[in-house]
Computed example of a mutant assay.
Amino acid sequence: METIGSPLLWTAFAVVVVLALLVDLVLMRHGGPHKVTFKEATWWSLGWVALAMAFNLWLWWYAGQQFGPEAGNRIGMEFLTGYLVEKSLAVDNIFVFLMIFTYFAVPEEQKQRVLVIGIIAAIVLRAILIFAGALLLAKFHWILYVFGAFLLLTGIKMIMAAGQAPDLEKNPLLRWLTGHVPMTRGYHGTDLSILQDGKRLFTPLFIVIVMIGVTDVIFAVDSIPAIFAITDDPFIVLTSNVFAVLGLRAMFFLLQGMADRFHLLPYGLALVLMFIGVKMLLIDVYKIPITLSLAVVAATIGTTIALSLLRPQKA
């Protein structure tokens, strides 16, 4: 599989991600368990976006120096488009996270810990899925058509299901966990399990972390094929994915009080998936320019957000 990922690029990327996570964890621990304010979430969100854009700028410059200005522009645009797609699809994750937190009545001060664990798990999981996908695409080109059809059908399904809240009571994983895992009735601080009368009991926090992890697996199955329609370079796919995921915690706290205001966004996300699915299906007939893809994704998400704000959902 062809990639621009040199040892220098992979090392630089790994260093940036590890340092960013360490800073995030240190500051979170320094602040202690607390309710994240809208102002704090806004600054963190802007910081994660700024970090991603700084990496994009450096990648564009480096690729331009190594492979020429045309290649640098293409690589920079591929990263930016992939980042925007993954960031947009991450919003759907957040809506489901909100539902899970509400269902289990997770204390505000514990939400940060759950999300940090979820983000670290998501990075590891997505790295595995991305490299597996890249290897499959390198050997079997026809898998692109499978991905394309899957995304198109997923988009159609999302449109049909838009406006309908998923019923956690019917979730098979949750039903199995609550039926087979011995649980405490309430939370015990940050503990995932406790010993009670010589028996190991798991707290609801453990169930929440499992549900968050499984949710990310499900959404990764949608989002990773989507970015392979933008580029088949595993370095760009992974870096844009990881930078989008890094800001998930801050985005959650930014949107948790505003989710109802973006009631039309699921339609926009569905249209993006359908567009990318069609792009994949047409790959050998007509390759849609990356600039057009970026414009379509940005315009679709921006329009549905604007319409959601202009036409609030009726109570």
Rank of each mutant, 00 (worst) to 15 (best):
A121W: 05
L22W: 05
A41V: 05
I290E: 11
G179H: 12
Y267D: 03
L309A: 01
L135D: 14
D92M: 03
I301S: 00
Q65M: 13
A134F: 14
I194M: 04
A226V: 02
P289L: 05
M158T: 04
Q256W: 12
V278D: 06
H141C: 11
L80C: 02
R200A: 06
G148D: 13
L174M: 01
I224T: 00
M183N: 01
V245E: 00
L152V: 10
R126N: 06
D216E: 04
D24I: 03
I128A: 15
V146T: 12
M158W: 02
L59G: 01
A41H: 05
V146D: 05
T303F: 13
T184E: 01
A105Q: 15
P69D: 14
I128W: 07
W10K: 03
Y187V: 00
I123N: 07
L8W: 11
R185S: 14
T190V: 08
V278G: 08
I143S: 02
V214I: 10
T300H: 08
R29D: 06
G186K: 03
R261F: 11
M160F: 13
T304Y: 10
V114C: 08
H34F: 06
E109L: 05
L292Y: 06
G163D: 05
I227A: 01
V15P: 00
V285T: 13
L265M: 08
L205K: 09
G198R: 05
M77S: 08
L246W: 05
I130N: 06
V296C: 02
E169A: 14
L307N: 00
S240H: 09
S193R: 14
V210F: 07
A149S: 15
A162E: 02
A162H: 11
